[in-house]
């Protein structure tokens, strides 16, 4: 299978993730979109590792690292969302505007 299939899939996922981060206003959905971006990178890494001759297994190992770090990131992110919800009863990122400029 040509590698371009995987790269196009990954690029699409990454772009959807970027759109989600920029357009969504709910903190949890923004977090979800960031996860989408990270997983798009994982597809890239694994595809390069499996299909490129010059690349070794590094890419697949790296993908595991990314999965682990993404889990830690979501842990911290959701904790912050819960803390804010407790204080303001709101998870709309657009409403977080005590500070400007």
């Amino acid at each position: 299978m040509p590698i371009s299939y995987f790269l196009v899939l990954s690029a699409l996922l990454f772009s959807i993730g970027v759109y989600g981060v920029l357009a969504r206003r709910h903190a949890v959905l923004v977090l979800l979109s960031i996860e989408l971006m990270l997983n798009a990178v994982n597809i890239n890494l694994v595809a390069f590792s499996a299909l490129l001759e010059k690349a070794g297994l590094d890419g697949q190992v790296f993908a595991l690292f990314v999965i682990a770090v993404a889990a830690a990131e979501v842990g911290v992110g959701l904790a912050i969302v819960i803390l804010i919800y407790r204080n303001s009863q709101d998870t709309d990122v657009g409403e977080l505007s005590l500070m400007k400029w």
């Binding site: 990270l38 798009a40 990178v41 890239n44 390069f48 590792s49 490129l52 010059k54 070794g56 890419g59």
Partner: peptide, 13 residues
Amino acid sequence: LLGIAFVYGAVGS
């Protein structure tokens, strides 16, 4: 991270 993946794809390391 995407940058790292592209480096990996470009040079394999």
